[in-house]
């Protein structure tokens, strides 16, 4: 038996083990926070000097390593376009799949389990493999197939482009949209569905007029998360559409485009003089970071508000 005095002395943390445990776990938290802070302050402090309105709003000359004339408008446009087009494809597909899974599918059926397994797998596939898939399927198979059909001599579809990069990203972010949508569909009380059905609505009418409007915040969250994820990804677009340099902004779906993330990579690894070009590198990274963090913060906020509303409603 432990003497009473000892347990009092060791206090509420439960002895040396408890204190060591507390310190270690607290330290782990601190280390992670320190990394985050170091990263953010580095990018911010080194990126701010070169960051200006001119920097984001002009088209750079061909030699984009030149510190004075460097600018990122084409990259901002390229990245925005590719996530926008991706959204157009991934949202309907993801939402419909989630609706099927929550509202229609028999959870015990092998097909349903197959779909769930497929979604989980797609979520785990490395992003570079999506790049290969995009190259093999969209560019080489679909693109060249289309070129063969239209009989054009020069490749129009059969080369990397905005369209193929966006589609590749759509495939990659599909699980994000499905999972977020499913979560919000499941959180809708079944009483609402029953009420609608009991009033003589068909299942589809119920989904369309009651379920989907209620799930809208969750669907939106999923969309923003997908966009945030895709905006920062470089690997899937390396072979499917990103260009080292283009003289003009992309005007057609079949154009190649410059991309913020890819540009960061180029500036970091192919600069003739890394120290000299560091300011524009950090400024470009800052632009990308602001974009993705804003999107993610938006999604987190939206979701927490949604969960709170839900808790109050129940």
């Amino acid at each position: 038996m432990r003497p009473i005095g000892e347990s009092r002395r060791l206090g509420r943390w439960g002895g040396p083990a408890g204190i060591v445990g507390l310190i270690l776990t607290g330290l782990a938290t601190l280390v992670l926070l320190a990394f985050l802070v170091a990263l953010l302050t580095t990018v911010l402090s080194k990126g701010m000097p070169a960051f200006s309105w001119r920097f984001v709003s002009t088209i750079p000359r061909k030699d984009f390593f030149d510190v004075d004339s460097a600018a990122i408008l084409p990259m901002v446009v390229g990245t925005s376009l590719r996530v926008l087009i991706m959204t157009v494809f991934v949202m309907p597909f993801g939402v419909i799949t989630a609706v099927y899974l929550t509202e229609y599918a028999d959870p015990a059926s092998p097909f349903t389990r197959g779909i769930r397994a497929a979604i989980g797998n797609i979520a785990g596939v490395p992003s570079i493999v999506f790049g290969l898939f995009g190259l093999g399927f969209f560019v080489n198979f679909l693109g060249r197939g289309l070129d063969g059909l239209t009989g054009s001599g020069v490749p129009v579809f059969g080369r990397p482009s905005l369209l193929w990069a966006s589609l590749t990203l759509a495939v990659m972010t599909l699980p994000v949209v499905i999972v977020a949508t499913e979560e919000s569909l499941r959180s809708i009380p079944s009483g609402l569905r029953e009420a609608s059905l009991a009033l003589g609505a068909t299942k589809l009418e119920t989904v369309w007029t009651i379920v989907l409007p209620q799930a809208l915040p969750g669907i939106l969250t999923g969309g923003i998360l997908a966009v945030g994820r895709a905006a920062g990804e470089v690997a899937p677009i390396l072979f499917t559409g990103a260009a080292y340099y283009t003289a003009e902004l992309p005007g057609r779906l079949t154009d190649q485009f410059m991309d913020l993330g890819y540009h960061v990579y180029v500036l970091a690894t192919q600069s003739p003089n890394v120290d000299q070009t560091a300011p524009i590198l950090y400024a470009t990274a800052l632009a990308l970071l602001v974009l993705t963090l804003a999107l993610n913060a938006g999604a987190i906020l939206l979701r927490s508000r949604m969960r709170r509303n839900l808790r109050e409603a129940v």
Binding site: L192, L199, G200, A201, A313
Partner: peptide
């Protein structure tokens, strides 16, 4: 179901306006 209406144990108004609830059916 249009002939046989139902009222549930837990009231379940749609989260819309009163008018929209009434007009739904």
């Amino acid at each position: 179901r249009k002939q046989v209406g139902m009222v549930f144990q837990r009231s379940n108004p749609f989260p819309m306006s009163i008018r929209a609830n009434m007009a739904y059916g």
